[in-house]
Design a protein around this nucleic acid. Structure first.
Lengths: 212, 212
DNA sequence: GCCAATAGCGAACATCCGTTCTGGAATAAA
DNA sequence: TTTATTCCAGAACGGATGTTCGCTATTGGC
């Protein structure tokens, strides 16, 4: 990406500070005097460039119609309940009625709406053990799950294999007469299971790993 | 304190929603049409009352000069700049002086403070390619990095192997006469390198993977 | 140097928008 | 009823503000 000029960076800083101090965006003439720019048209000119770079949004013909993109990202956090652990040998905890009561859950994590994408019924599980390295998921990772009945072909899901009494995270493909469970690690081979042996327990939304 | 009228409550709600959607406050005439009020002077009149109640602040003679007091309480999200990509064959982008200017970066992601743990100099990289599956990191993952000079033994870091011209994410152990680079996947064998061949480019803080 | 692209300048224009003024309706107390 | 208070209607004023236009200055490549 093209670099921003010094003037454009000063303008952004000014807008950011202005929003902090006043709670509303500056006018073009505010920016002009605040950054020591000689003409309103120069401000207009550089604001257009900033918008084409995707740093800000402008509403045409609207006074103070400037929005800082970086600011919108910090908006509302979504609390997600951590309802239990996921391990190879045991089914994942079923989200109960009080699961969604923020007060009743011992632990929650805050994630940005970008991750959940506004989905309903999202909960989190802590991964225990290294049985899911073929899904590129490590011991201690946190898996964001969604409580769904059915999933689309190719989506990653927590699957309970009844006969093996084992839960695993795989991409699920329904094929004629069988279900193909494909590890996320493309170097590894899929496993196949009979349809009545698999039970989809939830869709995987995201994985978060705290390393240090 | 005196109770607010129904009209005043509608106006507050409208201002709040307007700020959410547009990023800047509404004009008096925006409020007028948005709340179905007959005259601008009525809006002005009630805004004055709201200000005297301490619910909002007004700047005289300033277009959109309305500030919601309740909004000034900042939410605890931390914006992290996404400064580039990390791939096997190229060094990671060096965070420049303007990297930390929230306003100057085109893309940011919001993470909870739990992830960064209040650390300074945290930035994010998008992973390109599957060369880091042995670190349990997939194509498209986002790696949170910290800009540090040195790291502790056993910490995961982005390492630039000069001779191989390759960047890799490994746990780093300094041993007598050599550096051991241990993949996160414990089933895989470590590799060893000469100390003058490795260059630590940053510490890995966390990994975020959006699956669906 | 020469040309094109980029950046800046200053002024003018049309509209936006906070404010104010005159007056009327609604409500409540005396 | 009268009177005071609160709330509203509509219009108009004047400054604020985004936009545009013609022109100039600077920069970068050849």
């Amino acid at each position: 990406m093209k670099k921003l000029t010094d003037k454009q960076r000063r303008m952004l800083e000014f807008i950011d500070r202005f929003l902090d101090e006043r709670g509303y965006p500056p006018t073009i003439r505010d920016i002009q005097s605040g950054c020591g720019i000689s003409s309103t048209s120069v401000v207009d000119y550089n604001l257009d460039i900033l918008e084409s770079r995707g740093v800000i949004e402008r509403h045409a013909e609207v006074s103070r119609g400037i929005r800082l993109r970086a600011r919108t990202a910090t908006d509302a956090m979504v609390p997600v309940p951590i309802v239990g652990v996921i391990a190879a040998g045991e089914p994942i905890p079923v989200p109960g009625p009080d699961t969604w009561d923020v007060a009743a859950v011992s632990e929650t994590m805050a994630v940005s709406p970008e991750l959940t994408r506004g989905r309903e019924g999202v909960y989190a599980l802590r991964v225990k053990g290294t049985s899911m390295v073929d899904a590129l998921i490590n011991d201690g990772d946190i898996v964001l799950m969604q409580n769904v009945g059915t999933i689309e072909n190719g989506e990653m899901a927590a699957v309970w294999l009844k006969a093996e009494k084992e839960v695993t995270l795989k991409k699920v493909y329904v094929e004629p007469g069988r279900v193909r469970l494909q590890p996320a690690n493309s170097q590894m081979k899929p496993i196949y299971a009979r349809p009545d042996n698999v039970e989809v327990q939830g869709r995987v939304i995201a994985v978060v790993r705290q390393v240090a």
